[in-house]
Amino acid sequence: MVQIICFNAMKENNYIMRSDTPLKAIACFDAVMQTGSAVLAAQQLFVTPGAVGQQIRKLEEWLGLSLFVRNVRKLQPTEEALRYWEQVRPALQQLDEANASVQGRESSQVRLSLPPAFANTWFARRMPALTCSHPGLKFHLNASSEPVDFHTHTYDLAVRYFDGKDDNLDVQLLLSDEVRVYCSPGYRESLQLAVVEDMARATLLFTTSHSNWSRWLAQVGMSFDGMTSNLRFDQSEMAIDACCRGQGLVLTSPWLVEDNLERGNLIQLFPNALQTGKNYYLVCSRERPLGAAAQQFRDWMLGAARSISGDRGG
């Protein structure tokens, strides 16, 4: 009995992966689970959607079960797929980290998630200064407003627009925010917009991320009565672009229109600003310490935000 126990323990401590384990298929499965689509997974892996589908079928045959319900536009994971992914994700992350460590990528790479509009405006405006001051840093940037699960080790840091309350995250204020009304110079002239009451002649552009028109109007003693508001956008960038093209008034963050104000594409129509209760925060995991590169990046971001806020008297 003792010999059997020792033998089993030896086998456990000297585990060897099965030679037929389909690692490539598992990587494709992980990409599909992350994106929800064979097409998007193929783009991520730089292969064809057909190749992804072939690898998924190979994995299903190897496991002996179905991982997805095939719909027209999307692959719906089964309960077995969700359980399997939960178990293989940590292993895939450990493998990636081991590869990064051996290749020397880990020491200089920063994985960052930013809201799309913020990434393409505030951050893009300052990125040349960042790359100039930290030429050795390597960035993996993702434009998304979705919640970040730092337990998967997919990202080191993220910028999120919210009230700053999350006990599961290390949260640092990056930029205090408010919303103001902007339009193109031509639009103001064509409608002769001089005082807030003139807004009754204008079109209000709505955005999902900054849907604060009712509060702003109430603050200046007005309401939606008689106003046109038939243009609605899911992305702030689309609303701001429409505003630049003379399609109406946009109510948005001044941090998202810096370049357009500087170029004269937009003007602030009225001095009134609304505090929304949301700001831009730099967040990371409470449990996992940042690497040296991520710390450098965080310090730079906070310094850049402080310098700009200081210039504005904030």
Rank of each mutant, 00 (worst) to 15 (best):
M1G: 12
M1K: 10
Q3I: 10
I4E: 15
C6M: 10
N8Y: 12
N13G: 14
N14P: 01
Y15R: 14
Y15H: 14
Y15D: 04
R18N: 12
D20T: 10
P22G: 10
A31W: 11
V32L: 14
M33K: 12
A38S: 14
L40K: 15
A41Q: 07
A41W: 07
Q43P: 00
T48C: 07
P49K: 02
P49G: 04
Q55V: 04
I56T: 03
K58Y: 04
E61R: 15
W62R: 12
L63K: 10
G64W: 14
S66Y: 13
Q76Y: 07
P77D: 08
Y84V: 10
Q87I: 09
Q87V: 09
R89C: 03
P90L: 02
L95V: 09
D96V: 09
Q103E: 14
R105K: 14
R105N: 11
S107F: 07
S107P: 03
S108D: 06
V110N: 00
V110D: 01
F118T: 01
N120Y: 01
T121K: 05
P128D: 07
P128I: 05
P135A: 06
L137I: 06
K138N: 09
K138S: 11
E146R: 15
F150A: 03
H153V: 02
V159Y: 05
D167N: 09
N168M: 03
L169E: 04
D170K: 10
V171P: 03
Q172M: 03
V179N: 05
V181F: 00
G186S: 09
R188L: 09
R188G: 00
L191F: 08
Q192A: 15
L193F: 00
A194I: 11
A200W: 03
R201E: 08
A202Y: 04
T207V: 10
T208L: 15
T208R: 15
S214G: 06
R215A: 15
W216F: 12
A218Q: 09
Q219F: 00
G226Y: 05
G226T: 06
N230K: 02
F233K: 04
M238S: 14
I240Y: 02
A242E: 09
R245A: 13
G246R: 15
V250L: 13
V250H: 13
L251T: 02
W255H: 06
L261D: 02
R263M: 08
L269T: 08
P271E: 08
N272W: 04
Q275N: 13
G277E: 10
Y280W: 13
Y281E: 01
L282F: 03
S285W: 04
S285H: 10
L290M: 07
A292S: 04
A292F: 00
Q295Y: 01
Q295I: 05
R298N: 05
R298W: 05
R298S: 15
W300L: 00
L302M: 08
S307Q: 08
D311Q: 13
D311C: 06
G314I: 12
